[in-house]
Structure formats: C-alpha cells, structure tokens
Nucleic acid binder design. Structure first.
Lengths: 195, 195
DNA sequence: CAAGGTGATGGGACTTGGTGCCATCACCAT
DNA sequence: ATGGTGATGGCACCAAGTCCCATCACCTTG
C-alpha cells in the first residue's frame, strides 16, 4: 500500500465515548459501583481526561444542556399572539422535533432508568429541573408575560413535560413526543381549573 | 465544695450543636471553605460523630424534615369540604404556626442566604423541594383528589410557598408567614387562570 | 457490691471524588 | 527545521464518606 492514512493522534469524540461508557457501566453495575476510573478505562482514557470533559461524575449523564436553549428559543419564536401555555406547547413541538425523536426513545428510557436508580443522580436531575423551569420563566418574561404568570406557566409546562416524558418513555406510550406532550399540557391545564 | 455535680458523660444535643456550628462556619467562610472536621471541632466532637448524626455534609442544614410531616398532617386535617388549594392554604397556616414563626425569621434568612451561596447546597435544596411537593401530592390524593389535580395543586402550592418564604425572609416583608403565604397562594391562583 | 451489657463517642485505616501541576508528543504554522 | 498548540497521561494531594474497633460512664442484674 503506497499510502498510510494519517493516524489521528487521539480518537475522536472523547466526551461522547465517556458518556456512553458511563451509561453502559451504570446500567450494568449501578452508579455507586462504578468508579470514574472504570468509565475512563472503558472509553480508553484516564481519570484526568474525564474531569477535563465533565465537572463531576454526575454531570456525565447531563452534559450538554441543549434542552434549555431549545426551549428558550422555541418560546421566543412562538407567534406573538400565543398565550403563555401556547408558547410552551410550541416549545414542546420543538423538543419532539429535535431532542426526543423516536430514534432516541430507547436511549432516553435507559438513561431515565439509570437516573431513577441512584439518589445522587436524582438529586442532580432535580437541579436540572429547576434550571429548566427558570429558563422557561425567563423566556416567557421576555415575551412580556407578567412575572407571576410566567412562573406559573413555566411550572405547569415543566410538570406537563415530566408527565409526557414518562408516557413517551414507556414502550406502550405514543411515539411522537409532541403529541404526547400537547395532550399532557391540555390535561394539566384542565386540572388547574379544578383547584 | 462538698459536692461535685455528676458530670454528664457527653454534652447533650450533639446534633443541634453540629448544625449550629455548621451554619456559623458556612456563614463565616462559605460552605466550600469549611471541612467536616472544622464543624465537628467547633461542636467539640469529631468527624466520626458528625457522620453518625448526618448522612453527609449537606444534610446538616436540612436535617429533621419536620416540614413534610407538618404539611401532610395539615392537609389531611383540613375540612372535608375544602378544595385542594384550600387544603394547601390550611397547611400554610400550620407552617406559619409551628415552623416559620416570627422568632425564627432571622435564623431562616441566614440559612437561606447560606444555601443560596453554594451550588452544592442549592442542589440538595432542589431535591428537598421535590420531596416536599411529592409529599403534598400524596396527601391530596389521600383526600380523594384526582391524581392530576393533586399534582397541579401541590406544584402551585410549592410555588406559592417559595414566593412566600422569600417575602417573609425579607426584613421589609410581613411578620406572619400564614398571611404572606395565603396572599401568595391567591396571587398564584389568579395567575394560573391567565395562562 | 461486683459483673457484665449498653450506647454515644474517639480514632485510624481505607476508598473514591475532585483539583492542580507538569510532562508528553503529534499536528500545524512560520 | 523550529517552535507553538492542545488534548492527553501521570502523579501528588486534599476532603468526603465508610468501616471497624477501642473506650468508658451509665445502667441493670445477680
């Protein structure tokens, strides 16, 4: 062979490899029985490199935070005439289109199960949930929605999203996240009038 | 002196002493600049004893979890004719009567400021918030409120409580937590109809 | 009164998460 | 060629958290 392809000095996608290795190991032996060194070894890397890519061990399952940007942009892009909850529904559509696609349903379900099995991971998820509703609240305020209404709409939207996520993760549930989420949002809205 | 009083083998209230020492040190130098050994030393104890009283370093500021019981019992004790949010208001009264009393306002404000200053403590607080709304949801379900309505009412109640707590902690705010909370709950209820 | 049980504490060894610093070495521009 | 760049490896170190055993005033029992 006249040519040898230039060998990349490092294998690509270090972060993704670490995240995948972590998910696999957590699913196999549980979060607490997996050390950071284990994760790094399975990804062909070291502890140092792990902490260069993730702030801490929990963050490896929550890394990118793309969801917040997605929601904020979709809420901002909703038609000016939309009510707060309609803007939230618009954001759910975007999530179904770009994040919770049918192809990622199985992956999401596994990730969800792993998180549910570990107190530490549930705690981190609770924090991410707060950040998510804070981001939605902010996005609604920027639409001119009054502060309190923004808080309430974001809270109801986050609740609907949690419910929708659980239904969508279930193999028996619907395939299209947007549909499931719009229905959940409608139910939440209806329930809120009964309080 | 003919008598020497029997010296108790251990100073009493070890948990409380640890919690107080921790709050003081966190306020003085910050959570991250305080080690568990520092806390134990100020309380006249050791690291071993600290971890015998608290699951981890964060828990020392969240210890007893009396709030959940208080809310659950008050919701259960609300008149059978009360709507879900009225039952929540009933619970707010109980909190103002037994937990957030005027005498503890300054203490609560300090604790709140310490938590707000540390990411790790905010994360634990997020988890406690989830547990709190879960407890309220459960208590409402036991009143016969439908599942979804229970979720929504608990979520709105938790939001109102958060808002009320912030206003009540502020020296410029009202003195009686119950009053502040009932007003916040009314505002949240009104805002929810605008979504 | 003696003997033994109890329970909160002290203390030290050990694992793991997480930080900091420096060395390495293919790639790249000059 | 030469030197800079940037992702990585490796090591020392600190603090959180676990385990296990020793201690010793108090209490019960014979």
């Amino acid at each position: 062979m006249p040519y040898t392809l230039p060998m990349a000095r490092w294998q690509p996608n270090a972060s993704e490899r670490l995240a995948l290795a972590a998910l696999e190991l957590f699913a196999e032996r549980g979060y607490e029985n997996t050390t950071v060194i284990d994760i790094a070894q399975r990804a062909g890397l070291t502890k140092s490199t792990f902490f260069r890519h993730f702030q801490d061990k929990r963050e490896v399952l929550f890394g990118h935070d793309a969801m917040n940007r997605l929601l904020v942009e979709a809420i901002a892009a909703a038609p000016a005439t939309a009510t707060p909850l309609e803007a939230v529904a618009h954001a759910m559509d975007a999530v179904g289109r770009e994040a919770f696609t049918p192809a990622r349903r199985e992956f999401s379900a596994l990730r969800h199960a792993v998180i549910a099995a570990s107190p530490e991971l549930r705690e981190r998820e609770a924090l991410k949930g707060l950040a998510l509703t804070a981001a939605m609240t902010d996005a609604l305020k920027r639409r001119g929605v009054p502060d309190l209404a923004s808080c309430v709409a974001a809270e109801l939207g986050a609740l609907a999203m949690k419910i929708a996520y659980e239904r969508w993760s279930d193999p028996a549930g619907g395939d299209d996240f947007s549909e499931v989420a719009r229905r959940a949002l409608g139910e939440v809205r209806a329930a809120s009038t009964l309080c």
